[in-house]
Computed example of a mutant assay.
Amino acid sequence: MTEQSAPTTRPQSVADLDTAELGGENSILARQRRDHDELDRMMNAYEQAATDGPERDELWRSIVQLVFSHAFAEETVLWPLLRRVSDDGEALTAVVEEEHQAVNELVAKVEEADPADPRRAEWIAEAFALIRQDIRDEEDELLPLLRAALDDRRLRQVGASWDAVRRGAPTRPHPGIPRRPPGNAVLGVPLSGYDRLRDLGARRPGVLAGAALSVTGAALLAARARRSGR
């Protein structure tokens, strides 16, 4: 079995499956759950960290980087595949895409606001609530459909494509980028190198050249992943 129409009954949440049941450590399901667990860990640490120390700033940067690279890879590789293998794929991915867009807009507000703006804490709390809801929707509703429709080998192939795109994806909010291919890759991939420059705080010409190469490589990886998901 490789790909087939997923059943209409709701399968078991991937949160309740062990690694073997997810298709192995390199399966897309295992990779997704590891990212979700890491996001949950960092959000909890952020909420428990002192409000006047540097830890929160570092955690926030790490959360933002993971949220956007993860979501971009989902929208480029996973959700187009889910729409093909499940009759419910269109409706389910539309909900998650709305959640991604809302997080994008909230994080953009936080990034653009003055650090002393009291609304930042409210926006961050709203973003965390949406991220947690998004994780539940994906693990309980969307990812089980991929488990039902794909065999372990195919899940590992999709995982490799997803990881390749994630490593070259944007890491900052860009609310104007479309949520679906090909528009997300056409507009989003060229921004990934610039995002990484900002993440690193780089100012040296050598780093700028490296970022330019990263943009080219990311574009090729995104195109290859879209083809492999067909």
Rank of each mutant, 00 (worst) to 15 (best):
V158Y: 00
L59M: 04
V64D: 03
H70Q: 08
T171M: 07
L66Q: 11
E58N: 12
L82F: 06
L146W: 01
T76S: 10
S161G: 08
A127W: 04
E99M: 07
R156F: 09
E90S: 13
P175C: 07
A49E: 09
W162H: 13
E112P: 10
A94H: 14
K109L: 12
R147I: 07
D114T: 12
M43N: 05
G176H: 12
A148M: 06
G89F: 03
R132V: 04
V158D: 06
A160G: 07
V158K: 01
D117R: 10
N44R: 15
P178S: 11
I131R: 03
D52S: 14
H70V: 04
E90G: 12
V95H: 14
E99I: 11
P118G: 14
Q48M: 12
P181K: 02
I63P: 05
R180I: 08
D88E: 15
R154Y: 05
L143C: 11
D57Q: 15
I177V: 14
G168Y: 08
A102Q: 15
Q101Y: 04
G53S: 12
A127T: 05
A73M: 13
A148Q: 05
E55N: 13
D137M: 13
A45F: 08
E99K: 12
D117H: 09
R132Q: 15
R172H: 11
E74R: 00
V107Y: 05
L59C: 10
N44C: 15
L82P: 00
E139P: 12
R83K: 11
A71L: 00
